[in-house]
Computed example of a mutant assay.
Amino acid sequence: MTITQDDELTGLKAIGRIVANTLAAMTRAAEPGMTTRELDDLGRRLLEREGATSAPEATYAFPGATCISVNEEIAHGIPGDRILAAGDLVNIDVSASKDGYFADTGASFRLKAAAPDRLCRDGRRAMEIGIAQVGAGKPLAGIGAAIGRFADRRGYTLIRNLASHGVGRGLHEDPHEIATWPTRGDRRRIGEGLVLTVEPFLSRGGRMATEARDGWTLHSAPQAETVQFEHTVVATRRGAMVLTLPG
């Protein structure tokens, strides 16, 4: 969506804060021995307490309130009986709606890591570099170009069939397929007030996402550790306004 009124921004900020707080709480609560279903149950309770509705569940009948992906899973992991262990690479993606507005956020972390994880650190940095390219009048392809330069310098690959997207009145809106990798021929410009996600998938060798037999869970091909970080942002004349910050 493109914001045209102050009340729209107010509504987006409210749901953005809710999904951000939910993600932060789930990340803090994750412990070895916990199942991904138990972690998802926490996310559901937090969303419901705020009067928010899980977006993947309501929009696509996804079998969970949130997406929780572990190790070889890189996105859309179904919460279930999988038991988390120390050292697991975990991604949580939280998207929800309230009062007709949607926001989407996600982050990866190494569970109970003894030291900072380089891949996670660089994955967050890749997202931040992409967000820095968002602003009214800027080229949409600039997001992927900047992320691509960073990935190349650090020796990473990018998953090239999982893209950023418009969001706001629905979970996935125009513009669809906003590449977070370098592309050619995309001459679209970012309009003032455009609401979109920035969510690169940074990998140690993966280039594409492939779907598992369950019809939801995605793995990287070739198989490699992959992280995702995501914010929902609004394009302004001064740059990106991040909506999915906890507070």
Rank of each mutant, 00 (worst) to 15 (best):
H219E: 14
A209F: 06
A212E: 13
T217F: 00
P222D: 14
I190E: 11
P222T: 07
T180F: 04
V195Y: 00
T183E: 11
G206Y: 02
S203E: 08
W181I: 12
T180G: 09
A212N: 07
P222G: 09
R213K: 06
W181G: 09
R207M: 14
R184S: 12
P200L: 00
L194E: 07
W216T: 11
E199H: 07
R184M: 13
W216G: 10
G206A: 09
W216L: 09
V195I: 08
G193C: 07
W181E: 15
S220T: 07
R189Q: 09
T180E: 05
R184K: 06
G191W: 04
E211V: 07
R204C: 11
E192T: 15
D214C: 03
W216E: 14
G205E: 11
H219N: 14
A221R: 07
R204I: 01
T180C: 12
R213C: 00
T217P: 02
A221Q: 14
A209M: 10
S203A: 11
H219K: 05
E192A: 15
A209E: 05
T197N: 12
W216F: 13
P200D: 03
R184W: 05
S203K: 00
A221H: 08
L202K: 05
E199V: 04
L218P: 07
H219T: 08
E192L: 15
M208N: 13
